[in-house]
Design a protein around this nucleic acid. Structure first.
Lengths: 126, 126
DNA sequence: TTGACATATGCCAATATAGGAATATAATAC
DNA sequence: GTATTATATTCCTATATTGGCATATGTCAA
């Protein structure tokens, strides 16, 4: 299979630099498609396409205003990204104590759902 | 053109969930390829491939130990991601004051390099 | 209705995947 | 030397993309 679609989750959606630019721009407040395209020097269709991706993952919402569509940032959708990287901050800050604790718990939880040592007699496939 | 390669920057590299799993696992300390593959229930070749991507963007480093290669997380490479999302935290925390200030400066800077109102005679294209 | 503006979508080409399987390389042990 | 273990790479396929361009849709005004 190929790479995951950009609409699967926020991490994929923000992998594209231009979409990050749009997000940053929208943090100032809602803007129309043309305003976005102008501010970032994108073509209009490309801007619409990027906005579609962002909308599908919930990172933006739309409001109709006459001929225009005003896009607004839904920044709280970035929280999963923040929560994930946040824990590594302690590494480059030189404080590992809290991080290791967090990771022990995280991996204990993952180990349970993640196979390899499934205790059931395994009537799996075939 | 197609999507940016996963090796162009950290944002692309961490767009893949399995690579994030590897990063999280390696935060506990360096591990061999087989250890990683076992812990996450990945196939060995796939694990090596993901590690290659992570190494190319600098997110991991390798150390040889006999037959094994021990991979170590270079968490400081996640800092750009942290720095980018960090500024939006204030949005879901309800404090916009600092954010807007940050963004004004950011966009002033971007506007200068980003066309549309370039003051220089602009011998660049794109 | 006609026209102008704003936005969305469809089609195309080029490219970059991620997974599977087989195989190549490397290091160690016997 | 050969065998064994650990890791990397190559070939393949299916899929998802981004950009460009043309065009469709939608909204308002005269």
């Amino acid at each position: 299979m190929a790479r995951l679609p950009t609409t699967t989750d926020v991490f994929n959606a923000i992998a594209e630099p231009q979409r990050r630019d749009i997000i940053t721009l929208l943090a100032n407040g809602e803007k129309s498609v043309n305003d976005i395209a102008e501010a970032l020097a994108f073509k209009q269709p490309q801007t619409s396409k990027h906005l579609r991706v962002l909308k599908e993952v919930g990172l933006v919402s739309v409001r109709e205003a006459g001929k225009q569509r005003l896009y607004r940032l839904e920044a709280q959708e970035l929280k999963p990204v923040y929560d994930w990287v946040r824990h590594f901050e302690q590494v480059w800050n030189g404080r590992f104590d809290r991080l290791t604790h967090y990771l022990e718990q995280l991996q204990k939880a993952e180990g349970q759902q993640n196979s390899e040592k499934i205790e059931t007699t395994g009537a799996d496939d075939r």
